[in-house]
Design a protein around this nucleic acid. Structure first.
Lengths: 147, 147
DNA sequence: TTCAATTAGATTGTACACAATTTAATTGCG
DNA sequence: CGCAATTAAATTGTGTACAATCTAATTGAA
């Protein structure tokens, strides 16, 4: 027990969070690369499958990403033919994102991925639930005191 | 309950992991920027404070980062005067990283950061412990079937 | 011993991720 | 109304992050 204990990597909660986030996203790579998708593009599709014709702003709220990340991401997905982008007519500041038929069709083709990823996660159902709950609580707390 | 439930963002364990990792690292930014440090540089210092004169390889093992990330990172930290890099004489393939006096001195100057970050995490001590344990288990499992 | 295989770092190319700034459109207060 | 403040995207610049490849050094089996 010394005065520097708080600066030891092994005593940080942040490091395993950072590392686990990175490592699990990495696990998706081989599965998603087959479909010319990245993880960020994959979760973008998830939002669109549930809510098509969504603004970039709202997409950013759901994914916790800003326009600096989303603008080039969406342009790349547009080039691949998965989405279209169209400026709103009521409010010219807003850009709506829509799925193409090909983007919609991916939903069926990617259905096997959650199952395959689930096998990489060596946690019981209860542990996974616990983890999910704690992460939600943490995320909620982090955004509470947003400046 | 429909066939696409497994592809809903809200049913993913990975998304909150990815998001929480990102968001908590973001919280460090204002504290670390004062010292011209990034989060990755900060955790690199943590390893060096505990184990000075370490190879790039071993540093990568501890931080779960590869040479593609570490090489430019260490060069930048060298330019700022926090570390030095020296090729091993016994094995010319290996590069050792050492703290400079300035890098060592940062340990005292950054001692307030873990405490300030702790206040951003709205979890009880038990919950934080639970989370830490579950993340460790998850990370351990992810690296089990490394190919 | 010798050379094929392995290893450690470095390099290249791609893709985020975000802070900070910019631009253009809209809103709302006086 | 008129214009300052706000808002949504886009842009710019910096810093990871990693797959894939490359280079040079070392190792180990025939």
């Amino acid at each position: 027990m010394d005065k520097y204990d708080s600066l030891k990597l092994g005593n940080q909660l942040c490091f395993p969070l950072y590392a686990a986030g990175k490592e699990i996203v990495k696990k998706y790579h081989p599965y998603l690369a087959e479909y010319d998708l990245t993880y960020t593009q994959y979760i973008t599709l998830m939002v669109l499958w549930e809510t098509d014709n969504i603004s970039v702003k709202e997409l950013g709220n759901r994914l916790l990403l800003d326009s600096g990340t989303l603008t080039p991401l969406l342009k790349s997905m547009e080039k691949k033919g998965f989405v279209t982008r169209k400026r709103s007519e009521e409010d010219e500041r807003v850009v709506f994102v829509c799925l193409t038929d090909e983007g919609r069709a991916l939903r069926d083709r990617l259905l096997h991925i959650p199952e395959q990823m689930g096998r990489c996660v060596c946690l019981s159902r209860e542990e996974a639930g616990q983890l999910y709950m704690l992460l939600g609580k943490l995320l909620n707390g982090l955004s509470q005191d947003e400046r």
